[in-house]
Simulated scan of single mutants.
Amino acid sequence: MRNKWIVSIDDYRKASRKQLPKMISDYLEGGALDETTMRANEDRFDALMLRQRSMVDLRGLNTSTTVLGHSLAMPLMVAPMGMLTIFHPGSDPAVARAAVRAGSIFIHSAWAGCSLEEVAKVAPDNLWAQIAFWKDPAETASYISRARAVGVETLVVAGDVGSSSKRERDLHHGLSMPPRPPVADYFNAATRPSWLWRWLTGRKMTYGNYQINGRPLRMDEMNNWMASNKNPGANWEDFARLRSEWKGNLVIKGIMDAEDAARAVEEGADGIFVSNHGGRQFDSQPATIDVLPSIVDAVGGRAEIYLDGGIRRGHDIVKAVALGAKAALAGRPFAYALATGGEPAVDRVFGILQEEFKGAMGFVGKSSVADLDSSIFAGQAQSAPTESVLI
């Protein structure tokens, strides 16, 4: 779907609501409990003002950078997202192909609706794999072996899923596994015929990273599988053990505290992924941009730092990099696009953010990503402001 009136991420957000049943759009847009953290992720970016500079020679402006030695066209990657299949049958491979064309990296979720092997076929050199420490060590070891077999060089450890989340939008819609929506949601789904047709005729919705008896795990089997494999005991010893066994790059996701960031570096992390799960796991915690400066200080240049949560504009990426992130990641923007218009729309989201990022770099008078620092903020801000912008 290429609509000339869609020119921003928010336009894709609104358009996706017209394509998806309400229970699915609420799943995409919702967060934990009162959704305070989810809103703060965006609001806190908006609270940071930038200095406009004039008469700067920008003929050599270059948006490229590197992460762990891999070249990026701009400091933006795709955050891991589970169950993309429910938005569009193109699912993970569609987003991954778009990431390749955009010169980005796709991080495949441990909770994806299709297998790591399928994505590796379309993005062999632009793929990181997220892993979880399951209760049965053999499950974790098997997945790591699969990642190694398809050439993955960077693992992303899920460090922010130890406790269960409560998303009340989903509970209102009966989105358990298997889903048990109220009658009203069936009628609402019937008003989205294109989504319904894709759901009936397209890719089957499976928990495709894992298998039972040689076939992908069905959605109605997910609850039992998760109940028996969830590991509340996962800890730093598991991370250290993985570090001793994995010879590639190791990133830990879900770091929101300077003490944890320092510990991660001590345990051998190559990358620190500042993330609050987009506000979907734990409510009433800070926005990621607010904790970024303290984590940068704690890491002290010993590992790369990445950030997600609230990235909706190109200037958000500029702000994140200026405060010390090597790159920013986005999730929902790509899901909005996938739901709205499939793979071509995902291409367009990359293009929108690239154009906005380049424009913002020009306005703050910086011609290279390496030059982005705290001097770009109005008032020479050294960190995100501390006063609350929420009511």
Rank of each mutant, 00 (worst) to 15 (best):
G341C: 14
S284A: 13
G300F: 11
F357L: 13
E343R: 05
L372I: 14
L250H: 15
V265P: 10
Q281H: 12
G314I: 01
S275Q: 11
D257C: 14
M256E: 00
F273H: 12
S294G: 10
H277E: 12
D290E: 15
D308N: 07
S368A: 11
A345M: 10
A258H: 12
S294F: 02
A335D: 01
N276A: 12
R332P: 00
G314S: 08
H315F: 10
V296N: 03
A370G: 13
E267P: 03
G351Y: 04
V296C: 02
E355P: 03
E304M: 05
K253F: 00
L323Q: 01
D347F: 01
T340G: 04
K319W: 05
V318R: 05
E266G: 13
R302A: 09
R280M: 07
D297Y: 06
D308Y: 10
G324Y: 02
R263L: 14
D283F: 06
V349K: 02
L329M: 15
R263H: 14
L250S: 01
A360R: 13
G279S: 09
G300M: 08
I272E: 04
D270Q: 11
A370V: 14
V318K: 03
D257L: 11
G342R: 14
E355K: 14
A269C: 12
R263K: 15
G365S: 09
G341Y: 12
G279Y: 07
A287G: 15
F334G: 00
V251N: 06
V291T: 00
D371A: 14
G314L: 03
V299T: 11
F282L: 15
G314C: 07
D347G: 03
G271A: 12
T288Q: 01
A330C: 04
A258S: 11
P293I: 00
K253N: 06
F357Y: 13
P293T: 02
L338H: 03
G309Q: 01
A261D: 02
D297T: 11
I255Q: 08
L372Y: 04
V274K: 00
V291W: 03
I352R: 02
G254E: 07
A322Q: 05
Q281V: 14
R348Q: 15
Q285R: 15
A258T: 04
H315P: 05
E304L: 14
G359Q: 15
G254W: 03
